[in-house]
Amino acid sequence: MPALAVVGAAAAAAANCSLCFSSQHPSAQPPPSNSQPTNTVDLLAAKPTKSILEKHPLYLQTHSNLSLQFKEKILFLEIMGVDSGKALSLHPSLHTTSLHSIHSIIFFLQTKGIHQKDLPRIFGMCPQILTSNIKTHLNPVFNFLSHDLRVPDHNFRRVINKCPRLLACSVRNQLKPALFYLQRLGFKDLEALAHQDSVLLVSSVEKTLIPKLEYLVSLGLSRDEAVGMVLRCPGLFTFSVENNFKPKYEYYEKEMEGRLKELKEFPQYFAFSLEKRIKPRHMELVQSGLKVPLPQMLKTTDDEFRELITTRHAAG
């Protein structure tokens, strides 16, 4: 089935989905009517008309039973670069949201420095943003970035592109509790939290952050030692306990006969691939009869690692 026909079928299926949420109407207004659109997306956003739609091939290939308004929405999303079928399936309440409401959200994000070319990825990852309430949801997120994380207005785009999920999170129920928890642990660098480790702010404190810290403690570390590890390597909070921590620690403990002290000092161990980096290099060291500190074993490039082995052999 052609790609465009798939879009139409997916949209038609989404049209029959039961609604999870009622649509909300943002307060921001679209640009003045005298503004001049520069491309098809701008033209549709400014005033989607039947004549414009009927000239576009996508219009003819969408489901014939869909309303003109719904076809307008599908076409607008597709031209903007958003997979409309996927968005409507993942977020059914988008079905009842007006195109005017969607355009208001786009205009609001643009006033915050978000570029039009950023929107397909942002909406593709978080289609629920398209039905957000600007006053009660989106604006508080930008206030949080400005007041709590001290992000300058001109850096909003960089932060949102780094973690679009920020726009889909509740400030009261998610972002502020996560920031408070992280600050209590010792995360003091707000700039790093905003620009590098923002994924931690959209992580559940109870379901993600606390359990991972508790796992590290279960290895025999004190809580302060475990906290020290995540402060040195915040990425630990993003790794799966079952798929990352457990298999890598089991290999470290049983096969490498590693000491917890060295792991505590080099928490980045968990950031390396078990199959592609840890095991091959450990086996090569075993075959060579050598033992090197974890940082030298894992952080070096392939050439540096081979040179290290050659130098050690020559010295021995």
Rank of each mutant, 00 (worst) to 15 (best):
P2F: 01
L4A: 13
G8R: 11
A12D: 11
A13K: 13
A15H: 11
A15D: 15
S23L: 09
S23F: 09
P26I: 07
A28D: 07
P30E: 00
P31W: 06
P37L: 00
N39R: 04
T40I: 13
V41N: 04
D42Q: 03
D42M: 02
T49N: 06
I52N: 06
E54A: 05
H56F: 07
H56I: 00
Y59M: 05
T62D: 12
N65C: 14
L66W: 02
S67K: 05
L68S: 03
L68P: 02
E72V: 03
E72Q: 15
E78W: 14
M80S: 04
D83S: 09
S84Q: 05
G85W: 02
L88A: 05
S89G: 07
L90I: 03
H95M: 10
T97G: 12
H100M: 02
H100P: 00
I106K: 00
I106C: 01
F107Q: 07
I114L: 11
I114W: 00
I114T: 04
H115C: 11
D118Q: 02
P120C: 10
R121K: 11
C126L: 11
P127V: 15
T131E: 14
N133Y: 02
L138W: 03
L138I: 03
F144H: 07
D148K: 08
L149P: 09
H154G: 06
H154W: 06
N155A: 15
R157P: 05
R157W: 11
V159W: 07
N161H: 00
P164M: 00
S170G: 09
V171N: 01
N173T: 02
Q174W: 08
Q174A: 12
A178M: 04
L179N: 04
Y181S: 09
L182Y: 08
R184A: 12
G186Y: 09
F187Y: 13
F187N: 13
K188R: 13
L193F: 10
Q196G: 09
Q196R: 15
S198F: 03
S203R: 08
S204F: 01
E206H: 12
E206T: 10
K207W: 10
T208H: 02
L209D: 08
K212G: 06
L213I: 06
E214M: 06
L221K: 13
S222A: 09
R223M: 05
D224Q: 14
D224E: 14
E225T: 10
A226Y: 04
A226R: 06
G228A: 01
M229C: 12
C233G: 06
T238H: 12
E242D: 02
N243H: 11
K246A: 10
K246V: 15
K248H: 02
E250C: 13
E250H: 12
E250Q: 15
E253A: 15
E255L: 04
M256R: 13
E257K: 14
G258P: 08
L260S: 04
L263G: 03
K264I: 00
P267V: 02
L274Y: 04
E275T: 01
E275V: 01
K276P: 02
M283N: 03
E284P: 01
Q287Y: 07
S288C: 05
S288N: 11
G289R: 07
L290C: 13
K291Y: 07
P293A: 14
L294K: 03
P295K: 12
Q296T: 11
M297R: 08
T301F: 11
D302G: 07
F305K: 04
R306C: 08
R306M: 07
I309L: 10
H313E: 12
A315W: 10
G316P: 11
G316W: 14
